[in-house]
Each structure stands twice: as structure tokens, then as C-alpha cells.
């Protein structure tokens, strides 16, 4: 790609990511706030793709769409007004949070500009996705396996704790029923 276009695309993505990020706190509906945040993530993914990291960029888009849709469901569910259809605000303690947000942004931006970033003379890898996979899965394989197990155990534990009806509700106190008794029929074997 011509370097000029790269610059143009970067600035378009960067500015829109910040603008939609600000919109999250300016809109008056939870649905709009959620999808403004999604737009912000998608534009951020655009800048990642400009770094020739297509796998990470596309993955950010993929994961963020799924996450934001699920988040919209939960955010609207937990809102204090019925069904989240009434106007709302995302901001609490406006002055304090604004000061913290601007302070953090200035701090990080100054850091980005002041840090002497290393420049590498090494040629770009043929396939950065492969290199990333080897970096993560090569000598860190044990860590990744343990992490995976821990995450999986957490998920199972959360579901077990959160489930409304366990097997004793479904199959009886002595697990004597052949077929589970469920409030709604359907699915497997019923």
C-alpha cells in the first residue's frame, strides 16, 4: 500500500475510534452506547490491520461483535428502568470521571510520544500470523494449557453455581426419573 494511504487510513480510523468512544458517554440509550463502543473497537481493529497484523485485526472485529451483542443483553437487563427503553445516562460523577479520563489519555499519549521506540532492521516475517502462533504456543505451551484449564474450570463452576435447576430438580431426589421433568418440553429425548 502507498504510505500516504496508510497515513490517511490510520488517521480516519484513529479519529473515528476516539469520536465513537466519546459517543458512548454522550448518547442517552444503552443500545446506542453499546454499539458506539462496538464501532470504536472496529475502528481500533482497523489500525491493528494497518500494522500488517490481519489475524489480530479481524479477530478483534469478530470477538468484539459477539461480546458487545452479549453485553447489550446484560446491560439492558441490569438497567434500572424497565427494559432499558427509557432515556439514560452512562455518566456518573461527571466532573471526576472526565478529569480521570482526560488525565489518563494525556498520560498515555505523552508516553507514546516520549518513549524511544526500538526500530528493528530485521525484515518483516512472511506470515505474521504463524509467527504469533509460534510465539504464543511454542515455548509458552504449558502456560497456555494451564490457562485454558483454569478458564474452563471457571466457566463450568460459574454455570453450576448459576443454574436454576440442577439434576435433582430434573430427575428427582433419588435421581429416580427416567426422563427429566422440565418446565418447557423440547430438546433431546423428550
Amino acid at each position: 500500500m502507498i504510505p500516504v494511504w496508510r497515513d490517511v487510513l490510520f488517521w480516519v480510523c484513529a479519529v473515528l475510534a476516539v469520536v465513537t468512544g466519546i459517543a458512548v458517554f454522550r448518547v442517552d440509550s444503552m443500545a446506542r452506547a453499546t454499539f458506539a463502543l462496538l464501532a470504536s473497537f472496529v475502528f481500533a481493529a482497523g489500525t491493528v490491520m494497518l500494522l500488517d497484523l490481519p489475524y489480530l485485526g479481524v479477530l478483534v472485529i469478530l470477538m468484539m461483535i459477539m461480546e458487545m451483542v452479549v453485553m447489550a443483553v446484560f446491560m439492558i437487563m441490569y438497567m434500572m428502568n424497565p427494559a432499558g427503553l427509557m432515556p439514560m445516562t452512562m455518566v456518573h460523577n461527571p466532573k471526576g470521571s472526565l478529569a480521570i479520563a482526560v488525565g489518563t489519555f494525556v498520560l498515555l499519549a505523552t508516553g507514546v510520544l516520549l518513549v524511544p521506540w526500538p526500530s528493528s532492521q530485521a525484515p518483516k516475517p512472511e506470515d505474521p500470523t504463524m509467527q504469533l502462533g509460534e510465539a504464543l504456543m511454542g515455548d509458552k505451551m504449558l502456560v497456555m494449557i494451564v490457562l485454558g484449564l483454569a478458564l474452563f474450570a471457571t466457566m463450568v463452576a460459574t454455570v453450576v453455581l448459576a443454574t436454576h435447576r440442577g439434576r435433582y430438580d430434573r430427575y428427582g431426589d433419588r435421581l429416580e426419573r427416567k426422563r427429566p421433568q422440565d418446565p418447557s418440553r423440547g430438546g433431546l429425548g423428550r
Binding site: V58, I61, L62, I65, V69
Partner: peptide
């Protein structure tokens, strides 16, 4: 990633 857009 593109077909997941259907969710949203």
C-alpha cells in the same frame, strides 16, 4: 467475522 455481523 463478517457473518457474525448478523448477530448485531
Amino acid at each position: 467475522a463478517m457473518e457474525v455481523v448478523a448477530w448485531a
